[in-house]
Amino acid sequence: MSLLKVERLSKAFGAIRAADSVSFEVRPGEIYGLLGPNGAGKTTTISMISGLLKPDAGEVFVGGKSFWSDPRQAKRIMGVVPQELAIYEELTGRENLEFWGRMAGLGYGEARSRAVELLEALTLTDRAKDAVKTYSGGMKRRINLGCALLHRPQLLLLDEPTVGIDPQARLNILEFIRNLRASGTAILYTTHYLEEAETLCQRIGILDHGRLLAEGTLAELQERLGGDRVFLLEADFKGASPEAWDGFLQRFRVIQKTERQLVVAAIGTRDPSECLKDLLGLPVRVENVTLKRPSLNDVFLQLTGRDLRE
């Protein structure tokens, strides 16, 4: 049974549809990645799931029960890590953890011991008594994450928890999240970093302009491109029209075409060398061909016509 189920969730701010009929579910011990560029509707979706925003339409089920039928119970099950650092800079790391533990309903002693545990798990014990304002960006992010874990939530909502930190700090946080997943926590993880979604998440939903365009495992999403490899051609494609090339669209799916680049995936199970021969025979002077495994960016490209990194 899924711990979180989102059904046709919609929210509009004036004329802008921030979430448009979004549906997915997260199972215990799974990291579900919600991937999309800035403004795709990831934070709005998390805000609706955590009860900060009331959806215009749709339902959120937490632990099998509708969120709005018993919001207190639903909030007890989940922990939310906001994108911004929602911590008190004047307080020490330990004081922050203890405070949020008390807010989550823990007693004084329990909050204290849990804070010590988390400081150790987050490798912050030696800085526990320092004010958070003296921490590095990565350390602040770790405390921000820890503040949502005091009450041992079964469902963790992480809204871009690695934004703006160095690669090493990011690796530490991702490792910590993997450990949480291993302990059975269901995690909804929003990000616009492709690599994070690819390496961390068991299933990924691709969100753009408030709509969930596709979801599945990385392999399933790659499969949408028609295989496990794509070809990147560099040439002068100004004025060139793949539709006009004889039988080309029957053999290849165009993922992206620019003036200098053409990204295509072979349709059906064909030998790569055969595909290469086809491509070199095109009526343009091909300068370079690269064969690669399709990435999430290629999936996103195919779905939206835009590069996620743009």
Binding site: G51, R72, M78, V80, L85, I87, W100, M103, A104, C147
Partner: peptide, 13 residues
């Protein structure tokens, strides 16, 4: 501004 009010709201209705 610090989102701590929001964080509180994620814990309490």
């Amino acid at each position: 501004r610090l989102r701590t009010f929001e964080r509180y709201h994620t814990l309490h209705q």
